[in-house]
């Protein structure tokens, strides 16, 4: 494994209207792991991803991706935004959206050609939606929308992926497709940071976990940090059955 971590965040603070959304966050994600980011609503999970990708201004702190600044590491990062962040009535097709993942590589003035179409085709097949390629995106189900976004990230061929709530409100088959994809990415040595909401499945799907509530409560290998105590400190008393959850997951 590479010595340089895939993602290294130091002293990150982000504020909206002088209210901190993230406070003094330090986070190290080693290369090749699947990491979940969990925390209550308003904990700053999405903000963490957006700040790590330099999509919003930081009040303080630094972000390094494989030791580089975010701007210089653009070719190394892949991004799956929240499904609800775009207007799905936009006049375009599934394969068009997936191809957008290649625009960054194409550079100015160049248009997608045969190579890009082939790459798009492969990603659609890998994610199991090749039959939807020419479908208008307004006709997709929620799970199909999510898989379209995943295929778009896949063609980016990144070394570290950031996925914002990919499991939110998807059907069982999509959930399994995402899990398979995550495992394939790990097998190829890729790093994936996933904002996640289902506490139950964290130990099954992820090697590492970050418990976040504006500050980082705990971060590290799931077996070490995913404890009842840490969950309580993250969620306050607000999650029923935390004890049962961790007992079942970590005997």
């Amino acid at each position: 494994m590479n010595q340089t971590p895939a993602l290294h965040i130091e002293d990150l603070t982000v504020a909206f209207d002088s209210r901190p959304a993230l406070w003094d966050v330090d986070l190290v994600v080693p290369e090749g792991v699947l990491m979940a980011v969990v925390g209550p609503n308003g904990a700053g999970k999405t903000t963490l991803v957006r700040a790590a990708l330099d999509l919003i201004p930081r009040a303080a702190g630094s972000v390094r991706i494989f030791g580089e600044s975010v701007a210089r590491a653009r070719g190394l990062t892949g991004y799956v935004p929240q499904r609800s962040s775009v207007d799905w009535d936009f006049p375009t097709t599934v394969q068009d959206v997936v191809m957008m993942g290649l625009y960054g590589r194409l550079g100015w003035l160049r248009r997608p050609g045969a190579a890009e179409r082939l790459r798009t085709r492969q990603a659609l097949e890998q994610i199991g939606i090749a039959d939807l390629a020419t479908r208008q995106i307004s006709q997709l189900s929620g799970g199909q929308q999510q898989r379209t976004f995943l295929a778009r990230a896949l063609v980016q061929d990144a070394r570290v992926y950031f996925m914002d709530e990919p499991f939110a409100a998807v059907d069982a088959i999509t959930e399994r497709a995402i899990v398979t994809l995550l495992q394939e990415l790990r097998a190829r040595g890729r790093t994936v940071v996933v904002v996640h909401h289902d506490l139950q499945s964290v130990p099954d799907y992820f090697d590492q976990v970050t418990l976040l509530n504006v500050e980082v409560i705990a971060s590290g290998p799931t077996a070490e940090v995913y404890s009842e105590d840490n969950l309580r400190r993250t969620f306050g008393g607000r999650v029923a059955g935390i004890a049962r959850l961790t007992e079942e997951a970590l005997p």
């Binding site: 990708l53 701007a71 653009r74 962040s85 775009v86 375009t92 960054g104």
Partner: peptide, 12 residues
């Protein structure tokens, strides 16, 4: 127009 955040994340 479709996804400004994704455009930004790709360095545009």
């Amino acid at each position: 127009t479709f996804d400004p955040a994704f455009a930004q994340a790709n360095g545009f």
